[in-house]
């Protein structure tokens, strides 16, 4: 039951893009076409989940015991950068087809603040999910990270769909491109606001 609440909360109520403002740059950058948007979402999904698990363990077994939590930012970003590189190398060897599909997105992910944002949030914030406030355990953290990245994918794919239609419509010159896109996201966020309070 609690896992279900975590999933609903992370995907709809606290959607990472529309409510938490993380990962906006790639969200605006590669949402022109549905196919690239879904490719990017997959890659992000993979990296966020993996990075959260690894940084969670590093934080718990290295930084906290040695009283080095002030190094969180620097340690996490280095881990994420190294992880992304490793994923790239492994994918290239193991599954060339998947690499073909995700490859171009991977280097971009290091500077996607959604990855670092989720990693830091998971180890510093208390969550409630309908019950008592508590720090997340490894299992919950993994589910939370995975669900959050699903939320990212959902927002991305929905938005790409809207944008493909926007491209075919006439809009005033000053609105062309990003401005109209941002206004559409605003309206989408307004719709997602309706979910707030259910968890």
């Amino acid at each position: 039951m609690e896992y279900l609440l975590i999933i609903i909360s992370a995907i709809f109520v606290n959607n990472i893009v529309l409510a938490q403002f993380l990962g906006i740059c790639p969200f605006l950058g590669v949402s022109n076409k549905l196919s690239t948007a879904s490719g990017m979402s997959l890659a992000v999904c993979f990296v966020i989940t993996l990075a959260t698990v690894v940084t969670f363990l590093i934080n718990k077994y290295l930084l906290v015991p040695f009283g080095l939590t002030f190094l969180q930012t620097i340690a996490f970003i280095l881990v994420i950068a190294a992880l992304v590189q490793m994923v790239e190398i492994v994918l290239k060897k193991v599954s060339p087809s998947l690499y073909q599909a995700l490859g171009i997105f991977l280097p971009l992910i290091t500077t996607n603040c959604a990855v670092l944002g989720v990693a830091i949030n998971v180890v510093t914030k208390e969550f409630t999910f309908g019950g008592e406030a508590h720090m997340l355990g490894l299992g919950e953290a993994t589910v939370y990270a995975f669900a959050t990245s699903l939320g990212y994918g959902l927002a991305m794919v929905l938005f790409a769909g809207i944008r493909e239609h926007l491209a075919m419509n006439e809009v005033p010159k000053a609105f062309k491109g990003l401005p109209i896109a941002l206004i559409s996201v605003g309206i989408m966020a307004l719709a997602f606001l309706g979910f707030s309070g259910i968890v």
Binding site: K125, E126, E132, A133, S196
Partner: peptide, 11 residues
Amino acid sequence: STTGGFGGPVT
């Protein structure tokens, strides 16, 4: 004292 509010924990 902490409880769960609308958007997260309230302390």
